[in-house]
Amino acid sequence: MSIVFQKPESLTEKTTIFCPGCSHGIIHRLVGEALDELELRETAVGVAPVGCAVLLYEYFRTDIVEAPHGRAPALATGIKRVRPDLTVFSYQGDGDLASIGMGEIMHAANRGEMITVIFVNNANYGMTGGQMAPTTLPGQRTTTTPTGRDCAAHGSPFRMAEIMGALEPVVYSARVSAATPAKIMKAKRAIKKAFQNQKDKKGFSFVEVLSTCPTNWGMTPLDAVQFVEKDMEAYYPLGVFKDADGGDK
């Protein structure tokens, strides 16, 4: 009898406590598969954010350190600089990476730190109950933008994959979506590439994953998937914004 499907070795047997329809579980799995396929589990150190992914150490069968809010790229820098032999990745949400941690991500990227950053963009603060994030769409309602995000008052959403791609030392920046199976397969390839780059000592790699948050969006999981495809992908175009290997644009 042959095994056709099983959990990646890089993930634990624990069942996640993410909400029904949330993309975090899928993205965890994609990272786990990438680590497995590249045989990086035994050298991997993950840096957990503050936010819904704070329990990274429950779900990954790798070493994990938990960062203060937004500081994951600084911790990752410290780890990689003293232990360049380790595979270091941060896994961060939009509030963590693009709001409180904007300074740390910009400078880690601009130093070309040899790390992999997985950025989960679900357009709101999930764990604290659905407040406006720096990536909340114009007009989108959250608990702190009850009449919808007014860009004149709150500024415009950051397109992080484009921003990262514009920095000289970044070797790879892509935006993918966790909305449909086909897109998830593409997301997997981007995440794997981002780890392959680290394995090949190429430099800083960044993958933004557009993700659902049905609970805080007040939607069914199916409606949430549609919101990602119709609304988020319209503001946040999918694609590769930088690939030092000259890969597909």
Partner: peptide
């Protein structure tokens, strides 16, 4: 050696590296 972008980043680099 890293000249960090802020003291906030510097101490977090210390935290990450110390965790190893």
């Amino acid at each position: 050696f890293v000249q960090a972008e802020s003291e906030v980043a510097a101490i977090n680099m210390v935290y990450g590296a110390a965790a190893t």
